[in-house]
């Protein structure tokens, strides 16, 4: 089944693809700087967050589903800008999507951003894992 990518994700992908390798790194850094702070209900309760162990640096995510709309929260240290960038792309790209829209995002979306050459395929794997864990949390929360 071929699903059309939700608008925000499609825009993010287009923004990356049209840049050269060096500028893609710069864009990823801009995303890293835009990662929002956690709301206090999570920053004060780190136990609620799930660690993405596939990433080299400590990154934690939490997914909320309200009225069928997905909200992803993520935190990663300042000294891990690549990981922050991955998280920020997903936080922005998935914002406001329905459960089904997020589940329909292709699992290999991170490989389509043209980052493999810029940062190495090994590192891109961390973002793939982050997307996979986000979907798993959504499935668990909506299964009941």
């Amino acid at each position: 089944m071929i699903t059309e990518l939700p608008e925000t994700l499609a825009e993010i992908r287009a923004d990356f693809i049209e840049l050269d390798t060096r500028e893609r790194l710069q864009l990823l850094l801009e995303f890293a700087n835009e990662l929002p702070e956690l709301p206090s209900r999570y920053s004060e309760h780190p136990d609620l967050l799930e660690q993405v162990v596939e990433c080299q640096s400590p990154v934690f995510i939490f997914v909320e589903v309200n009225d069928g709309i997905v909200h992803l929260f993520a935190t990663a240290p300042r000294e891990a800008p690549t990981t922050r960038g991955f998280a920020s792309i997903l936080v922005q790209g998935l914002a406001g999507l329905t459960v089904q829209q997020v589940l329909d995002v292709p699992d290999d979306f991170p490989q389509d951003l043209g980052l493999s050459e810029a940062i190495s395929p090994l590192r891109v794997r961390g973002m793939t894992a982050m997307l996979g864990r986000t979907k798993r949390q959504i499935r668990e929360k909506t299964a009941a």
Binding site: L25, Q26, L28, L29, A32, Q56, S57, R78, E79, A80, P81, T82, T83, G85, E117, A118, I119, S120, L122, R123
Partner: peptide
């Protein structure tokens, strides 16, 4: 660095970057 973007967040003046992987 381990993180391929860390240099871009701030580095020692005049330093160049060499990434182990890329």
């Amino acid at each position: 660095d381990e993180d391929v973007l860390l240099y871009e967040t701030g580095h020692i003046e005049t330093a160049v970057k060499i990434d182990w992987h890329t």
